[in-house]
């Protein structure tokens, strides 16, 4: 399929075209990688910010406030809100827009909800590529909201410039378990619902934990980012300007320390591997008609006449040998 007209309309700011291009990528329709290749050279302008944390922490409410603040500063903002897909039905209920009503009709705002689809964590496999399209569509800020389940905090950190972990006073009990993994990938911490008791205590606990980690730190002091812990009341807008300022400071630090370049290079490495991986899978499953051939042998496998290993070898043996160097 020729995507040139779609790309031209997308760049010209046509929302329906942008929305369709995102679907092409999300559905991995034939040629979607060519579409991404086309826009690749114009990327890098947008700042990508991940907002993650447990369900109900106030992420969407916070996103609405951030969008409004960025809009006041004249920036164009895109939001990608990912919610889990049911592994049983493939369906998903995407309800984050409910909390973003006040910015929904603003021309400079684009909001897109995604199901996590085949992926296990809170992120869809194509979310980072969807962000590329938004970058190409000239948004200045891209906010990615994901539910913090399983590996998804790590995933979102791998695809954004800055990662914000949103907690609530009630998260205090879980702070011990938080230490492994999640704390390492977050750049900024927000204790939302600070109108409830325990927020200040959680902030102190987090700061102690972060301080200990800093003292044991592996990075040189000069490039060390001092993770801020901010209190917010998203429903009232309290603490939002401080969060915006902290995100700006983080961006400046990313630039100065060379970390931004490092992160973007790491993303590109990851991306390239992913494209190869996807192509390999497609090649094996389609070229070898693997599903069909497995289905043909299923009865034999089930009856014990042949083992899964032998059938797998049959399937792979049917592949044309690729070119070897």
């Amino acid at each position: 399929m020729n995507f040139d007209p779609l790309i031209a309309r997308l760049r010209a700011g046509n929302t329906a075209a942008l929305a369709r291009a995102i679907s092409v990528v999300e559905n991995e329709r034939p040629g979607f990688e060519r579409l991404l290749a086309e826009v690749h050279h114009s990327l890098g302008r947008a700042r990508r910010i991940g907002i993650t944390g447990p369900p109900g922490a106030g992420k969407s409410t916070l996103v609405e406030r951030l969008v409004a603040a960025y809009r006041q500063a004249g920036q164009r903002v895109a939001v990608v809100a990912v919610d889990p897909t049911s592994p049983f039905t493939g369906g998903a209920l995407l309800g984050d827009r409910i909390r973003m009503e006040s910015v929904a009709l603003d021309d400079g705002v684009y909001i897109r909800s995604m199901g996590s689809r085949g992926s296990v964590g809170g992120l869809a496999t194509t979310t980072r590529e969807v962000c590329d399209l938004l970058d190409a569509a000239n948004f200045d800020r891209i906010l990615v909201e994901t539910v913090g389940v399983g590996q998804s905090e790590l995933d979102v950190a791998g695809m954004t410039d800055s990662t914000v972990l949103v907690l609530v006073p009630e998260s205090g009990d879980g702070i011990q378990t938080l230490k492994s993994g999640v704390i390492e990938v977050a750049d900024l911490f927000v204790v939302n619902k600070a109108d409830r008791p325990g927020a200040e205590q959680l902030r102190r606990d987090l700061e102690v934990t972060l301080g200990l980690r800093r003292r044991a730190g592996r990075q040189a002091d000069a490039v060390l980012w001092k993770h801020p812990v901010l209190l917010t009341v998203a429903t009232k807008g309290d603490g939002i300007s401080e969060l915006i300022a902290a995100l700006d400071r983080h961006h400046a630090w990313l630039l100065e320390s060379g970390t931004l370049q490092e992160r973007r290079t790491r993303r590109l490495l990851h991306r390239t591997r992913e494209v190869v991986d996807r192509a390999t899978r497609r090649w094996v499953w389609e070229e070898a008609r693997a599903d069909q051939r497995i289905a043909e042998r299923l009865e034999d496998i089930s009856a014990g006449r042949v083992s899964p290993y032998e059938v797998a070898a049959e399937v792979l043996g049917g592949l044309k040998q690729g070119e070897r160097t």
């Binding site: 929305a19 039905t89 369906g91 209920l93 309800g95 929904a104 009709l105 909001i111 909800s113």
Partner: peptide, 27 residues
């Protein structure tokens, strides 16, 4: 959702403009 669809739910009191805008953005 249980029938396998991706459902964007936008809630109460939606104006036609909000509905159409959301529908286009969400494709």
């Amino acid at each position: 959702r249980d029938a396998g669809m991706e459902v964007v739910y936008t809630g109460l009191h939606q104006t036609p403009e909000m509905i159409a805008t959301a529908a286009v953005q969400e494709d």
